[in-house]
Amino acid sequence: VGIPKTMDNDVPGTDYCIGFSTCITRTIQLTNSLRTSAGSHERFMVLEVFGRYAGFTAMLPTMAGAANRCVIPEHKFNIERLTELLSADRKRNPSHYSTVLVSEGAMFEGGEMVFEKEAADAFGHKKLGGIGDLVSEELTHISPKYNNGKKIEVINQKLGYLVRCGDPDAIDSIVPMAYGNLALDLILGKIHGRLVVLKNGRYDNMPIDTVTSTKKVVNIKEHYSTERLRPHYASFEMRPLFIMTSEMG
């Protein structure tokens, strides 16, 4: 019997994985806290967040207003376009700053994932990291083109483990309790090979091989504007709590 737990919220079959809400809450809080520095220095702010294959942890905070733009693993982005957008955002902002959230798995147009280390973990995954640094360098380099020849400096911060430490938020206090009880009920009922899930606002379970039968990523066509490099949504009516996390791309 399995319980879905990952901040990236990319386990297929469930709308929700333990840790996701706290990650989103922390990201919004930390981004808002850094605004004063970005505004006082009138800079771009680049924040690298978790998200190896799925960009939910960058999408939701951006949708909530924490950032102007986000770049995610599901779409290889054009750095020139990102610089243009952030420069325009900064110009419109009375405090003269703009913010982009960068998923650790995000890739430049024509590029591949950036790894911090070549060594792989027990699951064969190399440690991602460094895309935020590269984005920051390129933004500074290209910015004069969109700022009357003047370079725009960057505040570059990797949020990393700051978003996965401390106490869980309300949702991450309630859901794990429910998941644990659901899993125990299945075990006591001698029912195996199941994954406890939260689907369409209700607790349930499904075959555990759902986890490996497909991938759960951001549906670009439905939820991400590749032109504006930010979440896209036409209507919230009858949508699930976290909007785009109930679909498998």
Rank of each mutant, 00 (worst) to 15 (best):
V71Y: 01
V71C: 00
I72P: 06
P73T: 04
P73L: 09
P73A: 09
E74H: 06
H75G: 00
K76G: 05
F77V: 00
E80Y: 15
E80F: 14
R81P: 13
L82R: 02
L82N: 03
L82P: 00
T83I: 15
T83V: 10
T83A: 15
T83W: 13
E84Y: 00
E84Q: 03
L86E: 09
L86I: 09
S87F: 07
R92A: 11
N93I: 05
N93H: 06
N93D: 13
P94C: 05
P94W: 01
H96E: 12
S98E: 12
V100T: 00
V100A: 00
V100K: 00
L101I: 06
L101Y: 05
V102N: 09
S103C: 10
E104A: 09
A106R: 02
M107A: 10
M107V: 08
F108S: 10
F108R: 13
F108W: 09
F108G: 14
G110Y: 06
G110D: 06
G110S: 07
G110E: 13
E112A: 09
V114L: 02
V114G: 14
E116P: 01
K117E: 09
E118G: 14
E118L: 03
A119D: 09
A120W: 00
A120G: 03
D121M: 02
F123V: 08
F123Q: 11
F123C: 11
G124D: 07
H125C: 08
H125R: 10
K126F: 04
L128N: 06
G130C: 08
G130D: 08
I131M: 12
I131P: 02
G132A: 08
S136T: 11
E137F: 13
E138P: 03
E138L: 13
L139Q: 10
L139N: 06
T140C: 11
I142P: 08
S143L: 10
S143D: 11
